[in-house]
């Protein structure tokens, strides 16, 4: 129990961010027309590609002779980049079509 209380007081700032971000996410999506659900999902999909930063941090913190960590990290960075680039490009392609209609 004390461990949990310590954890909360040590990470209070992050806990605030988590709670506030949950509300921001809900508010932002609130009243989106169904037409835009697919691009929105695709855009959100690209944003969680931010996980690639974690993968980069793993690699930056690895020992140069730890082959296992480096190879797994390499794959993680590669897949994360695929998520980011693929996600944003696909979303842009979808939205490009909406624009042409004007």
């Amino acid at each position: 129990m004390t461990e949990l209380l310590d954890f909360i007081s040590n990470n209070l700032q992050m806990i605030y961010i988590v709670i506030l971000m949950i509300f921001v996410g809900v508010e932002v999506i609130g009243h989106v027309p169904a037409v835009l659900h697919t691009p929105l999902m695709s855009g959100a999909n690209a944003i969680h590609g931010v996980v690639v930063i974690g993968a980069i941090l793993v690699m930056l913190g690895s020992e140069p002779d730890n082959i296992l960590a480096l190879s797994l990290g390499f794959v993680a960075v590669l897949l994360g980049t695929l998520n980011v680039i693929g996600g944003f490009v696909v979303t842009d392609r979808m939205l490009e079509m909406f624009k042409k209609k004007k």
């Binding site: 971000m21 996410g25 659900h37 944003i47 974690g54």
Partner: peptide, 21 residues
């Protein structure tokens, strides 16, 4: 885990927006 704010905000934002969607 890393105390990395951008991963935290981006991740939670998508987690909550994705749930609503």
């Amino acid at each position: 885990l890393y105390g990395n704010m951008v991963m935290l905000t981006g991740g939670i934002l998508v987690g909550s927006a994705g749930t609503i969607l």
